[in-house]
Structures are given as structure tokens and as C-alpha cells.
Design a protein around this nucleic acid. Sequence first.
DNA 1: CTGACCGGTGCCGAAAATGCACCGCTTTTG
DNA 2: CAAAAGCGGTGCATTTTCGGCACCGGTCAG
Lengths: 299, 299
Amino acid sequence: MRHLLDFRFIEAVMRAGSIRKAADDMNITASALNRRIQRFEEEFGSQIFERLPRGVRLNPAGELIMQHYRSQQSDLRRVQSQVADLAGERRGHVSIACSQALSPYFLPAQIADYRRSHPGVTFSVNIRDRAAAEADLSSFRSDLALVLEPIHLVDFEVLMAVPQVVHVVMRVDHPLASQSEVRLRNCLDHPHILPTSAYAVRHMIEAALSGTSRRVNPVIESDSFDFMRHYVENENVLAFQIPIGLRLPRESGLVSRPIATRDLPPGSLILGQMRGRTLPIASAKFANAMIAALQRFAD
Amino acid sequence: MRHLLDFRFIEAVMRAGSIRKAADDMNITASALNRRIQRFEEEFGSQIFERLPRGVRLNPAGELIMQHYRSQQSDLRRVQSQVADLAGERRGHVSIACSQALSPYFLPAQIADYRRSHPGVTFSVNIRDRAAAEADLSSFRSDLALVLEPIHLVDFEVLMAVPQVVHVVMRVDHPLASQSEVRLRNCLDHPHILPTSAYAVRHMIEAALSGTSRRVNPVIESDSFDFMRHYVENENVLAFQIPIGLRLPRESGLVSRPIATRDLPPGSLILGQMRGRTLPIASAKFANAMIAALQRFAD
DNA sequence: CTGACCGGTGCCGAAAATGCACCGCTTTTG
DNA sequence: CAAAAGCGGTGCATTTTCGGCACCGGTCAG
């Protein structure tokens, strides 16, 4: 690195014991080297070489300078190696803002899978509603966002989108469980619970009802899909969730059924970044891995 | 020092958020600065800035570079101070981050005393809350920190610790003024004012109450102990402060009483530096002087 | 004394850095 | 939708810096 050039010359002079010999070693003229030394001493504020009749020798200040140089050198090597690791994606950090639906199954599996091949990469996962996720992107708090039906799409650059049909979650003994697809209005006829209006599922359902006379009438509102999932086990109500956030084993006593898409158009689960931004290597690579996984999920 | 020039420019760009603004700040043209950045990135082997539509922003490699720069800067200052000491001139600079309680009496007295015997030594005093003080240490903005109850990050090295019993400050006509030691719960029964939660005194009181049903209920919250001290003169409320920050002459009309230590354990006033760092001569010597003074204070 | 070797300096040309004008692009503004 | 304003980046002429050459004064070995 060029900014350490003076130190390299100083080191050469120290080793050679004279400016002329060092100049010879470094393939420059003695006068040029001499001036470098003098200029350095002047701006450092003190001599670093003792002038002897037969050459020069480091004085105590010079010893300190050399010590400083070595520490500087080693720290720079450390930085460069860290950066190299960063670029080689053996190391790095990925920050991602995502909807709650991704938190139980999809994202843990994705990250674990990625980390099996890139154990040096670390992650920040922030659960955000769709407004906050985009805010995180534009304030650089997150590199990536994986959100259902984001709001603005202005600062938001879509990397991948997969449709998600909203499902209704209920106990197996619920009357609607016998149907393979349920109508939205039938859901509203039964007690149901809904996320708060900050969440896309609520927004989608209300948008679908906007042209009709029906309105939602939730017995419980919550900002936690996890809570709502588990509440269904305790009271025979209907909850809503998208398939990527669902995994209902037989022993859970719960089932999910898709809502007819003519009642409720599928929402888009969108992976995005801040528009125009060049992502860190690790984040870009992880985004590619997720795109592939979402592709498989959509099929 | 000229060899750190590139870093100074990089720092300017980081702060300004754009090359053009930084060029303006540094009194060169944008093209020259632009080329400097590009040349640096080329010889460093990796980009340092993300290019955004509205400017540039440090990327992770750039963060590492800046960290490297700060450490180099501080180490160079150390070397120069050691050299100055070598040359027999007692010069140097001490930068210290401290809690507000130190600002009225202890630190001015300490510094004035030190400067009587070392008039060539200059000082920077930065009042910081306990989180910011440690941040200053690790970013090399301060050599020393003198803080009540620091958060104890890993890279904080304790040089000296003295216990400080929290005192309650009130007017002489306050009902509690007749007691030589007051119970914390009695304080809460009277109108009281408190520092914001960034400060250790607030944190200690809330921690002491955490196992109880009592809560603080301050009529005023402030980040200025000086303001709070003087507010007590205007309304008959209780304020809190540690003894090192207190000196209440009779004519002030105020008195202070210790809070029972079984209610509120004493906090530790801690002098510390960044772990593993070799301080400049001036700072190390001043630290020793302060250690002696704190020792006397504790007795 | 002499020649070899040393650090240091004046001068001049080469090289590097800078300033200026301008490009292509995006965002903001009217 | 067009104009204006900012942004990073680039070609070119100019200025500044740096290196090479010749040379000086001093020390020292033989």
C-alpha cells in the first residue's frame, strides 16, 4: 500500500545502516531517499535517525516509529484478510427483514441450509410488518426483505415474487374442514380471528370485502401469527395464514384449506432489496439461494 | 501526517455522504477526490464505498478501513507523545470521557492540579453517558473514561474503582432533611426528579426497585444533573446525585443525605481504558494521578 | 595526503496530482 | 412531461511534487 511507502524506505535504511546503501537496495538515488527521510522527520516533528560519520542509525524515536509501522502493517493485513473473506463470501453478514410467516419454517431452513455451505456467514433476522420492512431497507438496517404484499414498491426492487393463496386454519372437527376449498363468506359466518391491520393478510381480506356488504368481525385480533395458530387449538375458531408459514402435522389436530381465489386473490410474497443498491456479496448470494428455493416452493 | 491523507479524505466522504460535498469541505475539486478514492480502492483491492444514486456510503470493507484508520491515528498519537516525552518536553494531550457528576468539581480540580506540574499537557473533556463513554474508548475518541457503573463491555479495562453511595438532594426544609440516612421508599413518597434512563443513577434506582411493587414517578426527567441540582432550589422536590458530584454550601439552602445502602447498593465509579491499549505517556501519567486522587477520595 | 564513503543541496526534467469542462445518469422540481 | 439539479466518473491542460544528476563539505582508513 502506497501510504506505507515512507515506512518501507525507513526500514530499508535501518537495515542497510546507510542511506546510500538503502537507496541502492530500493533502486532509487540516494538524494531522493535522503529527501524522503528528511521530509518524514520534519512532518513527524523529530529526527528518527542518528547521523554518524559512517552512516545513520535509528534513534529511540525511530525505534518507536518502526514499532508503530509493524503494528500498522499487521493490522492492515488483518483488515485485508477480513475483506478478502468478505468478498469470497466465506465470511460476511446478511441482514433480512421478513414477515412473520417466514419465521417458523422457511427462513430457518433456508439459513441453516446456506450456513451448511458457508459457515462463516452470519445473519440478522428481523420480523417486520410490511411497512417496517421497507423502512428497514431504505435506512440500510436490512439488506433484504421478504414480505407478503409490500406497500409502496417505490424504493423497493423486486428480486422474486411468488403467489400465496391465503389459507384458513381450523380444527379437524370444524364444519368447513370437510371442504377442499372454502369460500370467504363462509369463513365470516364462523367465529374467526385476524391479524391487526398492519399485516397483509388482514389488508387482503378487507380489500376483498370492500365491494361487498360483508365485514370481518374477529373475536380476537393479534399481531402474532404464532399466537393465533396456537389459539385455534384452544377454541374452535378460524385463523388465516399463508402456506409458507404453515406446517400442520396430523397430531396437531389442525388442518388448513385454501380460500377460493375468486373470493380472495393470491397475495405476492416478495423478496426485495433497496432499489439501485449493490448488495454485499454475502447478501447477494443468499438472495440467489432464496430465489431458487422460492422457485421450487412455487412449483 | 501526510501518509494518512487518503484516510482523512475517506473520512470526509463518509461524513458528507457524497464525494462532491466532501470535496467542498476539503477544499479540492470533486474530480480529484473522486480519483483519490478510486486509486485507494484499486490499490486496497476492494471497493470501500457503495455507489448510490444520491451519493456514496461506506460498505463493510470501508467500515473496517475506518476502524483501522482510527486505531492507526491513535497509535501514532501515542508514539508522538512518547517521543515528546523522550525529548524531555513534558507535552502531550489527554482525552477523557466522563460522567456528568465529575464535571463540576472533581475533574476540574484534577486537571488544574496536574497542569500545575505539567503545563505543556492539554486536555479534551467530553461528558458522556455510560454507553457513549465506552463507545468513545473503543473508537479511540477518548483515552480514558471515568464513569459511574459502566455497562462493562469486553474491551473495557478497569484501572480503578471507588464505591459511590447515591445521595438524595433536597432543600433544608424538606421533611426528609432531618434524617441522617433516608430509605429509598420514603424518597418515592415525595415528589422527585430523575435523570433519563441513559444514566447510571436512574438505572441503579430502577434496578433496586425491580423486586418490589414500587416504581419511580418523576415529576421531571432530565439529562442534566446541573439542571436538576438547580431545580431543587426552585421547587421542593428530591433529586439524586453521587457525592463526588456534590458540594452544597450552607448558603445554597440545600442538603444531601445518603440513601440506605440496604435499599440501594453503592455504585462503582470506574476509571477505565480500552483493553490492551498502550496509552500515550501523558494519559497514562494523568490516569495514575487520578487513581491516587480517587484513592484518597474513597478514604 | 588521498581516495572512498558518508549525508546534504541546487537544478532540471519526469511523473503525479489537481482543476476544469463535460458526460451519462437519476431524482427532484415546476 | 420537460427542465433543473445532483450525483459519480472521465479526458485534457496545468500545476505541484518527486526523483535523478552533479556536486559540496566532512570523516576516516591506509
